[in-house]
Design a protein around this nucleic acid. Sequence first.
DNA 1: TTGTACGCGTTATCAG
DNA 2: CTGATAACGCGTACAA
Lengths: 325, 325
Amino acid sequence: MATIHDVALKAGVSVTTVSRVLNNRGYISETTRGKVYGAMSELNYQPNELARSLLRKQSNLLGLIIPDVSHPFFAKLAERIEYYADQEGYKILLCNSQMNPAKERDYIDMLKRSRVDGIIMGSHTLDIGEYRNLHSRLVTFDRKIGEDIPYLSSDNYRGGKLATELLLSKGCRKIAHICGNLELDMLSQRRTDAFLDAVRKAGVEYLIVQTEMNGLDEARYRGLLQSLLEAHPDIDGIFATSDVIAAYALKECIRTGRSVPEDVRIVGYDDVSAARWATPELTTIRQPIDGFGREAVRLLRMQIEGRPVSNQNELAVELVERGTT
Amino acid sequence: MATIHDVALKAGVSVTTVSRVLNNRGYISETTRGKVYGAMSELNYQPNELARSLLRKQSNLLGLIIPDVSHPFFAKLAERIEYYADQEGYKILLCNSQMNPAKERDYIDMLKRSRVDGIIMGSHTLDIGEYRNLHSRLVTFDRKIGEDIPYLSSDNYRGGKLATELLLSKGCRKIAHICGNLELDMLSQRRTDAFLDAVRKAGVEYLIVQTEMNGLDEARYRGLLQSLLEAHPDIDGIFATSDVIAAYALKECIRTGRSVPEDVRIVGYDDVSAARWATPELTTIRQPIDGFGREAVRLLRMQIEGRPVSNQNELAVELVERGTT
DNA sequence: TTGTACGCGTTATCAG
DNA sequence: CTGATAACGCGTACAA
């Protein structure tokens, strides 16, 4: 692969001149510029970003750590993040932690060694202290890990409230809430808080089922839903914390002869496109995934440029009513 | 961020010694080794991979260009590729071409500037010639672009044959085949070839509908399915070239009062997890996505190590019969 | 308007 | 066993 020296040689100028042409710096005569461009295209020259990054102490790399990019929510999130990153000149290093703390730690180290300019943390299996000692530019999703580290989330409480109140307003009297692991101390627990506030206030029966969300093992979802509906055949409302789970819930209802929404009403979360493949289509709480992507990249860029950023970033959610309610 | 010099200074040795400890090269006294490790952990030292890569002329980066990581098939593929890449010490740079030739070209250039060790091409919007002049180590998916460039695909003809013959054996007499853009010259066209061979041999009615696959615009799928079923109300079999499309087909059938599989039988392709969210679950042709990921990384590693690789790599497919047939 | 020389953080080579 | 030095490819003072 050609270097800047080869180009300089072929163009009959110095490397400095080539560099100047490359970066549009200083004054350069048109003839020189032409010669340099000619040599560059003849040699198929591509500047070595490794060398540039080393010199500039800036790699234009962003690390993205998520549980699993094959989960529809994170797939869409990754796509949006990559889109905005590309627009702003950043490249994305993809890391799937599989919710494995050891892997997550290794990925963090790898990203530091790779001198990424920032890390987007969508996976949170480690203790807060570990993240705080990172000394890397960070943006986290749905988890608060320190006053000085920006996080991005949506209005989870409102999402939970909208979902639960919709079920209540439709007359549900025994509602199941299926959520992720509450020990992880994620902001998505506000959904559960809101659920509890709403069902208690309404005085209806309810139950809460925890699951490792993030789609690591879909077989587990099926089993979970099955035993839930068996143990509580009189459930008439389900608020799931992701559309994937809601889709399984819907399936299980239909399989067991329940009609949706007549016998059981279901609300999902995220509004990934999977919500529209189901029949009937899922009523769900739409998360602003595009906004997440845009903001994640922007928050990182601001930090990279040394500009102040707000640490609490909550975007709005929206109730999307479809066929399951 | 600490450098090797800082470590050397703190440990009271030379940078060479630190480098030796780091890479386990040559003989080093235990005391020295201890001092160096001590200094490294005190300073939280992380070797700069940029500098290493520059020197070694090897970045351990792999570029992955796909149409859109939010499409379930590519999401799973990306996850598997990242998994195996990580196992073999490679990192993944994620690129979503959005089926846009200009973007694809830009990504290719970006990857070359980043000095990736190899590129996995899952997006194919450019002419074969452009890929051939790349002079990068490549692996392509489902497209043959030259005798010396390894490609990875599954047995598309067999997949199409299995799907179509299943529909025929169930008694379908008018079968629609929904596939991607046939102009792109992808190997997945073998599915269509097989479809044609089978329906013609059986002497049943058939029609072929092309679509930009890869889920770029799901609204278009819906419209397409709608007009298809309107124009041909007597269709009793559908062979879709992806589960996403099949899921929309299923939805549209149900919406228009058809029962599946009684009135219309449907076969999808890929066997992504979405196939199991549908009700009834989709009958589909399973693609070996895990095998794709493993082989893609392996084929690239072999090339990087200068070892010979086979250029034609076809993995087996499998019919998975579920509820839609 | 153009060129020389140094440094970014590492590793390989060669000397001690 | 350990250390000095050159090189990887590039950008930028500083000089001309």
